[in-house]
Structures are given as structure tokens and as C-alpha cells.
Design a protein around this nucleic acid. Structure first.
Length: 485
RNA sequence: GUCCCCAUCGUCUAGCCUGGCCCAGGACACCGGCCUUUCACGCCGGCGACAGGGGUUCAAAUCCCCUUGGGGACGCCA
């Protein structure tokens, strides 16, 4: 579906509803649309589906836009930046939905339904109990003029329902799944306009996509069964439907659709936890089978180049947190320092690193800890090594070893003093000299140094840590440790 | 329940369209080893799958059918 007749420029859209954070599954939909638009040199539209007045909020809207931007998803038209196909918020198109629905009523393709929600709910339950598919039973479909007049006289609120034609075959070719066919009989009359006057999902989508000139609809698998409804609507409207691509959903470890109870799912949360946007994007496209996730780390342009809708795998994929972590670690290790630093700086500010060290030193520390980090937040421990003098005392081995430890530290301190500059080479020779003089070496020797200098048993190599600490600080820490012994 | 979608190692996948090169390749995870002053990184090795059954064919992971399993939809949510 890479724009077969490339006469018409492609127009794709991502249409989240601001009723929650942008979660990883929606992010993938957004990403696919973004990649498709970029690949075909088309347009990406961002549209807010805020017709659920109860649950939509401005805060969620802000968070969604922010998360999208952070992921590097760039829309050309949207609520925040306008465009020729506005409005980009469904609540602002309210009037159009109603007028167009009324026009359908005029033509007999839609009708007023006076059923109450409670009654509908009861009937649905009854259907289910009888083993029938739940769905509208068509009660108001053939109201007599008298009955209708009666409802109107009593001022009963109504919805506008689409009159689904019988025995029609609705087929479409999905870019990912191939041919899909439904019979209209499996679809019951659905609501176009709710009793509060607001459009319902399927209607708003069709009116919008049509008005906005959307050529390609790329969305989750869960919308496959909405597609025939929308196709019927296009038919009623006499308009050409877009092309469709339904990608599979992301599932949790238990095989159920990914949700909050599977742990972190919001993009903003991943961001806070120290994931890189590059890693998330790379993981997400890898999940779809677009790029091999074990292959080389790709730059955004390369991902665009590799992107192909028809290459997306059909089966649902389970979200594997461990693999994401691994990918994140790879990016931390392989990203250019400038890029890594950029993503790390908000964290550095929080940790009070900014005023403690100049950028050069910060970068040296980052380089020193890279191999030990999988998340950006893992750098906290690394920076702590340099930020605070360790409380080494408790970290030393048993009573009997105190004298040995003392000897090692004293002698190593001397060796350091004798060394001109304690760079990597200087450290190595100081250590060699100290080993000879103290007659200690190997694990005991180095672990003693490590504990005295960092207060921890694990961490980056001392050859990387010591040059950054510098001679003065090293000696100071050694003395500090000696005092505690 | 009805309709729709899907089905290769625990997980993500390659292979499937255009049958033989596949007693199925890679990666994550896991296990073992190496490197090493520690953890990590890195390197080497191991474990581990064509859901089942029928066809078609000289030959099927690959094509067809059925079964099973999973997912989704069926809402005045999107």
C-alpha cells in the first residue's frame, strides 16, 4: 500500500482520544502512521477524538502531544498547529456531524431511536442469555408515524441510528491482512448521533476522514470489525473510503491486551524511568517485524527507509520488557555522547550534578558508566560515586582483615602521592608499585581500593574511575577510609 | 453465543506468497564458560519451536480442509 498511484499525495492520521495517557500500544499506531507518511512523503494529521465529554481532559491532551513529540513523531497538521483540513478536534466539528446525519435521516438511511440506555442494557443482557449476539434489536427501526409522533410529543430524547442495509457484502483489502469480508447482517443498527447531540465514534471518524482527505487509515486490529460499519457509511455518503491497514495489538505477558495492570504502559512513564525515545521506537518497530531487533541500531531515517506496511507481521505480539531494557542499554552504549547527554540532562539536573561538575567532567563520568547502565536512571549510582565521599567503613571485610586493608590503603596512598598525574597510566603504575610493596594483590587488593574509593562492591572499572576522581580526591578518600577503619 | 482476525523456540522473529537449499536460522531471556580486581560490557557454547489431524505432491513449516487454542468486536467508549 505504499501509495500505488502516487498521483495523490498520501494523508495519514493518528487520532487519539484524550481520555488517558499515550500508552505504548497507541504510540506504535502513531509511529506506524508517522513512518508511513514520511516514507510516502505524505502528510501526517493529528486529530483529537474528544467526543467523550465525560472522560476527555486537557491534561491528557497535553501529555499525549508531549509524548508524541518526545518520540520524534512529527505531524504536519493538528490542533496545536492548524492546517487546511481543520478543525482537528472533533468537538469543534459537532455541527457538521449533526447536519450530515440529518441528511441521512432525510434519505431514510438513518432514523431516530427513542430507546433509553437502561432498556437497551436490559435487552442486551436478555440476548446474551439466549445465546444471541448482543446488539441493537431494531425496535425503533419501523416505528409508525403515530408512534413517532407520540415520542416527539412527550419530548423523549433520541439518538440517530444508521439503518444498516440487509444482506450486503462489505469487503475491503487490508494492507496487512489481505482481503476481509463481512456480511452486513452481522452488524446491527448503530448510533450516529448520541442523545446529547455529540457524534459517536464510527460516524465522527468517517465524517472526519472524509473531510480531511485521509487516504490511508492505519490503526489497531481491534478496529477491523468497525471497518465494515464505516465502509457502509462511506457508501451511504457516496464517498470513496480510504485504504486500510490494521496492525496487530500488543499483548501483556498473560496474552491479554496490554493495559495498566501489566505495569508501565504510558510513554511518559517510560520516559521518567529512564528509557530513550530511540530505544522505544526501535523496539516498537522491531515488534512489528519491520526491522530485526537484533540487527544494527538504526537512525530514524533508516527506519523510515526500512518501513513497509505489508511487512508488518499479522500476529499479536507480547510486550517483552526485558528486551526493551536490552535495547535501551544498547542505545546508551552506542549513541553519540552529545545525544546521550541531551537525554540525560533532565536527570542530571535533578541529581544536582549540573553545578557540581562542568560538562566535560560530566561527560567523562557518563563515558565511565555507560557499560553499567541499561536505563538513564542507572547513571544516578555512577554519579553518586563522584558526588559524595563514600562511607567506606562498613564495607570492609571482617575484623581480622582490617590490618591488611589498612596496609593496602596506606601504601597505595603513598604510591599515588609519588605519581605525577593519576591518569590511567599513572594509576596502573601506582597500583603495581603498591602491590609489590604491600605484598598484596588480586581480588583483595583491588576490592579494598574499590570499597575505600567508591563505598561499593560493584561498579565501573577503577581504571576509569580513578583518573576522574584525580589524585587529590583519591588520596583524600583513602585517608577518609583509613580514619574509619 | 455470533462475526472477524491470528497461530514457528518461554518471548520477538527469519523462512511461507514463488513447495525441495530447513531433522528450521537469528535475537531477548535462561544456563554454562571465557575475559576480568567487582558488577556490567564483550566473546564462545548450551537449552529450546513448525498447535493437532487430514489431504494435495516424488517432496510441506511452506498449498487446501477440519479441529483446537488465542485475540478482537458486538456500547449513547474510542
Amino acid at each position: 500500500m505504499n501509495n500505488p498511484d502516487n498521483k495523490t499525495p498520501t494523508r495519514a492520521r493518528f487520532a487519539p482520544s484524550p481520555t488517558g495517557s499515550l500508552h505504548i500500544g497507541n504510540a506504535r499506531t502513531a509511529l506506524f502512521n508517522d513512518l508511513f507518511a514520511k516514507k510516502t512523503r505524505g502528510t501526517l494529521i493529528l486529530r483529537l477524538e474528544d467526543t467523550d465529554l465525560e472522560r476527555s481532559s486537557a491534561a491528557f491532551e497535553r501529555e499525549i502531544l508531549e509524548s508524541l513529540k518526545w518520540l520524534g513523531i512529527a505531524w504536519n497538521e493538528g490542533p496545536d498547529r492548524g492546517g487546511p483540513a481543520g478543525p482537528y478536534r472533533q468537538t469543534e466539528r459537532e455541527k457538521t456531524y449533526r447536519e450530515m446525519a440529518e441528511a441521512l435521516v432525510e434519505k431514510g438511511m438513518a432514523y431516530r431511536c427513542y430507546c433509553t440506555e437502561e432498556s437497551l442494557e436490559e435487552r442486551r443482557k436478555a440476548q446474551l442469555a439466549k445465546g444471541l449476539p448482543p446488539g441493537y434489536d431494531g425496535r425503533c427501526r419501523h416505528l409508525s408515524p403515530e408512534e413517532r409522533a407520540d415520542f416527539e410529543r412527550r419530548g423523549v430524547p433520541f439518538t440517530l441510528r444508521f439503518r444498516v442495509p440487509a444482506e450486503e457484502s462489505v469487503a475491503f483489502t487490508d494492507a496487512i491482512h489481505g482481503d476481509i469480508r463481512f456480511m452486513s447482517d452481522s452488524i446491527t443498527d448503530f448510533i450516529l448521533i448520541r442523545s446529547n447531540g455529540m457524534a459517536s465514534y464510527n460516524w465522527a471518524v468517517v465524517v472526519d476522514d472524509s473531510a480531511m482527505g485521509v487516504t490511508h487509515v492505519i490503526r489497531g486490529d481491534d478496529h477491523i470489525s468497525n471497518t465494515p460499519k464505516q465502509l457502509l457509511l462511506y457508501r451511504a455518503l457516496g464517498r470513496t473510503p480510504p485504504r486500510y491497514a490494521h496492525h496487530p495489538l500488543i499483548l501483556g505477558l498473560d496474552g491479554k491486551r496490554l493495559s495498566k495492570r501489566h505495569g508501565a504502559t504510558a510513554v511518559s512513564q517510560f520516559r521518567r524511568e529512564g528509557y530513550l525515545p530511540q530505544a522505544i521506537v526501535f523496539y516498537l518497530v522491531g515488534l512489528g517485524g519491520i526491522v530485526p531487533s537484533d540487527g544494527p541500531l538504526l537512525r530514524p531515517e533508516e527506519i523510515v527507509k526500512a518501513f513497509d506496511l505489508s511487512g508488518i507481521s499479522k500476529g499479536a505480539a507480547i510486550f517483552d520488557h526485558k528486551k526493551l531494557l536490552w535495547i535501551n542499554g544498547r542505545f546508551i552504549r552506542e549513541l553519540p555522547m552529545a545525544t546521550l547527554y541531551h537525554h540525560l540532562s533532565p536527570f542530571l539536573k535533578n541529581w544536582g550534578v549540573m553545578n557540581a561538575f562542568d560538562q566535560e567532567k560530566q561527560e567523562a563520568i557518563i563515558a565511565c558508566g555507560r557499560d553499567n547502565a541499561q536505563l538513564l536512571t542507572d547513571f544516578k549510582v555512577i554519579f553518586d560515586i563522584f558526588l559524595t565521599k563514600p562511607d567506606a567503613g562498613s564495607a570492609f571485610a571482617g575484623e581480622g582483615e582490617k590490618d591488611i586493608s589498612r596496609g593496602i590503603l596506606e601504601i597505595f596512598a603513598e604510591s599515588c602521592q609519588e605519581t605525577e598525574t593519576l591518569d590511567e597510566q599513572g594509576y596502573i603504575s601506582a597500583a603495581k608499585a603498591a602491590m609489590k610493596r604491600s605484598n598484596q594483590r588480586g581480588k583483595r587488593f583491588f576490592m579494598t581500593l574499590r570499597r575505600a574509593l567508591t563505598g561499593m562492591e560493584h561498579g565501573p572499572e577503577l581504571t576509569n574511575i580513578i583518573p576522574i576522581l584525580g589524585k587529590e580526591e583519591v588520596v583524600s578518600r583513602l585517608n577518609h577510609a583509613l580514619e574509619q577503619l
